[in-house]
Design a protein around this nucleic acid. Structure first.
Lengths: 329, 329
DNA sequence: ATGAAAGCGCTAACAT
DNA sequence: ATGTTAGCGCTTTCAT
């Protein structure tokens, strides 16, 4: 693989001139430019990013931290990040932490080591203290999950309001025994969505019953199946379920079917996210639609601004309640 | 951010000694090592990968090319690649081409530019000619989709046999009107799966009818819905459907439900891949289980071998027919 | 408009 | 066991 030296030699110019041609500097005569371009073609030369990055001390790589690539919720966000990144000559490095602190460390080091110019974290399990430390010297943006009152800029939705609306929708349909399938409340989004759930119940003077609130370990389908199994063992069974993630809701739907009950006639069901699967289930799933693509774009824009040392403000995007078959009794 | 110079100065040694400490060279006295380590801590020093990579002319980054991150088929493969990569001190760069040649070019250039040490392509839409060119000078491995008789090593399954087994399973259940939902036959896997489908039909002297073979644009759910809509318009309707991807099969299931028919009583259904969602549908989906995680690990191992300039051989992994509710009439 | 030369941060020969 | 130094490939001042 040829280097800039060889191109310069072949073209009969200095390396500086080759560099100028490479970077479209205006101060190169058309004649010289042509000579250099020919040499580049002849030698099949490709500039080394390594040299360029070292010199410019930038990598034009953005890190995207996520707990697991298998939750479809992230895929649309990633699309948004990726498109925005590419439009700004950045590329993204998808980093699946599997909620493993060791892996997380590897990725944090990549930023410290200048192998990446900044981080977008979508990982609720991220070590916030370490992330805050990193953010002191490097650009960091939080996407979806964030820290209340923290100093790292974020893009998210109003989780409390969204959950409130979802539950209120069930109440309006006449349900008064509404269960919640929540994830671990060490996560902010889980606490917020529970608050919304409780606010709706209180507003309509319905009791908040602990035996109708189930907490899952993570968001895999299987956790939804398991949650329903528990909920249906209760003495008094709920007539509606709000799950804080579509993956959980889809698992719940499975569990309900397995136990011989029918959605929505026996149990109404609402999910959260609007992943593409949620429209393929039978019945289709009522859910809160998060603006995932837009969220990704916004996060990437914020990060790139931050890299340019521009001031960035946190943003709360709009969501929407999508009413589908799982609540159309 | 401190550099190696400053550490050397602070520790009162040369940069070479610092480098030795960094790389765990045995020839450093414990006393010196301690001095250096203290200086590193004091200055909060992190070695720059950029400098190291330039010097070593390696990036320890692996490119993973895939058409779209939203097909869950890829997520498990990626898990395998990622784990293997990390175990070998590599990281992966997930590159979604969206079947867009321009994006593809960006990624190919990253390899040429030394920003990545090698490529695993899972993208059936990849420009094979360009990939072959790249493979002349850089390590490249194909995963899942490959080129028959090509020179790039691959890891895959026996698509023809798998499809044959899937269709034979339907025939053994008594079906004699079996439709195929295939993707575009410009892809090798699509041609191979069609061959398997036809072989099974011929073996049992069933006619191959073009009106029962539907080709989709891509693998999104919606294509499966659409395919069923067409198949059910036929004068003589099929009693079973084999779809070459679970995403298509799930869409097909949706389409069948919408039209008021029942799986498996009215129409039996077989998918391909065994994505996790295929066990969440109602009914659960009979499918060909691909060893996705293992496939990813194998591809990564092959690529890393190839980077070390070791000889690598193509590998065909085992698959398995998983019989579930969608064919249990 | 072009060239010479310094330097980005690091590693590895070579020398001591 | 440690230091000196060249150089990886590039960009960018500073001259001319």
């Amino acid at each position: 693989m040829a280097n800039i030296q060889q191109v310069a030699q072949k073209a009969g110019v200095s390396v500086a001139t080759v560099s100028r041609v490479l970077n479209n500097a205006p101060s190169v005569s058309p004649k010289t430019r042509l000579k250099v371009e020919n040499a580049i073609k002849d030698l099949n030369y490709e500039p080394s990013m390594l040299g360029r990055n070292l010199r410019n001390s930038e990598s034009r790589l953005l890190l995207v931290l996520l707990p697991s690539i298998s939750n479809p919720f992230y895929t649309e966000i990633i699309n948004g990040i990726q498109n925005t990144a590419i439009a700004n000559s950045y590329n993204i490095l998808l980093c699946e932490t599997d909620s493993n602190p060791q892996r997380e460390n590897i990725y944090f080091n990549m930023v410290k080591n200048k192998l990446a110019d900044g981080v977008i974290s979508m990982d609720p399990t991220v070590n916030m203290q370490k992330l805050n430390e990193l953010a002191e010297n490097h650009p960091v943006i939080l996407c979806s999950e964030y820290e209340e009152g923290g100093s790292i800029p974020y893009v998210t939705i109003d989780n409390e309001l969204a959950a409130y609306q979802a539950v209120k929708h069930l109440i309006k349909l006449g349900h008064d025994k509404i269960a919640l399938i929540n994830s671990d409340e060490k996560f902010l989004y889980a606490r917020q969505r529970r608050n919304g759930y409780e606010r709706a119940l209180r507003e309509f003077e319905l009791p908040i019953r602990n035996e109708w609130i189930y907490h899952t370990k993570d968001l895999d389908f299987q956790n939804g199946v398991q949650a329903v199994r528990m909920l249906l063992q209760q003495e008094e069974k709920p007539s509606a379920i709000f799950a804080v993630s579509d993956t959980l809701a889809i698992g719940a739907l499975k569990g309900i079917n397995v136990s011989g009950l029918h959605v929505p006639n026996d149990i109404a069901l609402v999910g959260f996210d609007n992943i593409s699967f949620s429209n393929m289930t039978n019945p289709t799933l009522t859910t809160i639609s998060q603006p995932m693509y837009n969220m990704g774009c916004t996060a990437a824009e914020m990060l790139i601004s931050s890299i340019k040392e521009e001031k960035v403000e946190s943003i709360v995007l709009d969501h929407e309640l999508l009413i589908r078959e799982s609540t159309m009794g």
